[in-house]
Design a protein around this nucleic acid. Structure first.
Lengths: 243, 243
DNA sequence: TCGACTGTCGAACGTCGTTCGATAGAATAG
DNA sequence: CTATTCTATCGAACGACGTTCGACAGTCGA
């Protein structure tokens, strides 16, 4: 009953001697990530991936049971870089402020997601297949532990921080409506036109929208994220101080 | 240049006299939402929707230009209920604490998303097509405005709150791995098995995971959300007090 | 030499979003 | 009353996709 990982663990982790085409778990995931980076989530197709690997479609299914699993594993594969980049903030014996460490870690994770929007949808879906996601969870958790809260408070705080980062990043990094990608309309012009339409709403019905439309028109996604994160971390610090 | 809504505005909003099958924008969206509620996102198919409407596939395209637009409009259609439920907290002339109003509004929105996980992916993607999403944004914004912050701070706070609600809700409401849905394994057993595997990790490498595994095993999604939201709102209150 | 195992391969199946031309009914014009 | 135009419906067809399957190639141990 404890063994539920079974059906997904096919024991396919080794790199075998080459036969016809050069496959391996590493190659499959690397090329999948490359494909996602170059042309987005919709470009990752079994056929496209097979062509890139110089092999047939069917071969990929020897390494991966479904497209979901492929994306789960690709996501975890991409997390290695984030783990490496956040390692300096992970020493729990450091004298530094734990909240500063949390902030620094969250910044790196946020940047990684902005670069790879597809991460959000598959991050931490299956901790059996995604050991690096669990390590990311652990890494933030260890810093929060240093605040001396109860186990429950610690658990809630880590979930909130991780959820916030993922949530904001996925909101902000959703693809512009294809008009921008075509190059026919620049991102700035698109944003300006968007703000313009907000300005044309009824000021009586939408006072807030009119109040912040200038901020919206010139806003920077990263600033927006960091400001929100600071609010959350201020609340956390307050809780740690027994407020 | 200001008119970018053009291509999506087909002027298809009226309810015409019936011809062969009983279509209308209202019927299309209602049946789409019903389909999503009954069997999830993957069940919403043009063919399935057409059958439910008693018509052909092609007819739907007269009301909607693509599946994306269908989901955008269905999402906005579902937001009406949320707007109705949060109306009591929307009076800006009330003497009550604005943060309490924000919290109450966020709770309702969270509950709605837990009931309909598909909302997250399409919420506020296109404010032209989704006027109710803009109203939701406005509704929270008006409460935050009462805190007397700068326009920039207000803008950031609203984005943070909305992003947090969506982010946490989408994290928590992602479908269990099909084993639970089958009924072969109860949700509690699944959660227990999940926690058990966490317990079997190396305590040296995952001290935090071991520290909170009991909390995780018995946690309630709603409690988790509300605790995180309180952290965020505490930080916001601090900012409003000039801390 | 002989199975058994590890991988690879691509044709084939079913489903999906989407397109398109045909067409029926209502509204309008003459 | 008829002709024309507009609104709206319809389903066959297309191409792309995830996935399955049987065939088969190469390697290893007996």
């Amino acid at each position: 009953m404890a063994d539920m990982a079974g059906p997904k663990d096919h024991g396919r982790d080794r790199t075998p001697g080459r036969r016809r085409a050069s496959h391996s778990m590493e190659a499959v995931l690397s090329e999948a990530v490359a494909l996602l980076d170059e042309a987005g989530e919709q470009a990752l197709t079994f056929r496209a991936l097979a062509q890139r690997l110089g092999g047939g479609v069917g071969s990929i299914y020897w390494y991966v049971a479904s497209k979901d699993e492929l994306l789960d594993r690709a996501t975890d594969h991409a997390l290695v870089a984030v783990l490496d980049a956040t390692e300096p903030f992970a020493q729990d014996d450091a004298a530094g402020d734990p909240i500063d460490s949390i902030r620094a870690t969250a910044w790196v994770l946020f940047d990684a997601i902005v670069d790879r929007p597809w991460l959000t949808a598959y991050f931490m879906r299956d901790t059996d297949i995604q050991p690096n996601a669990l390590r990311m969870y652990e890494r933030i958790g260890e810093q929060v532990m240093r605040l001396g809260l109860t186990a429950r408070q610690t658990f809630h705080a880590v979930s909130a921080i991780l959820g916030f980062v993922i949530g904001i990043a996925s909101d902000l990094s959703q693809q512009p409506p294809a008009v921008v990608a075509d190059g026919t309309v620049g991102p700035d012009e698109y944003m300006a036109a968007f703000a313009e339409r907000w300005r044309q709403t009824d000021p009586q019905e939408f006072p807030f929208v009119h109040h912040i439309v200038d901020e919206f028109a010139h806003h920077d996604d990263t600033d927006q994220f960091r400001a929100g994160l600071d609010l959350l971390l201020d609340g956390l610090r307050l809780q740690a101080q027994g407020g």
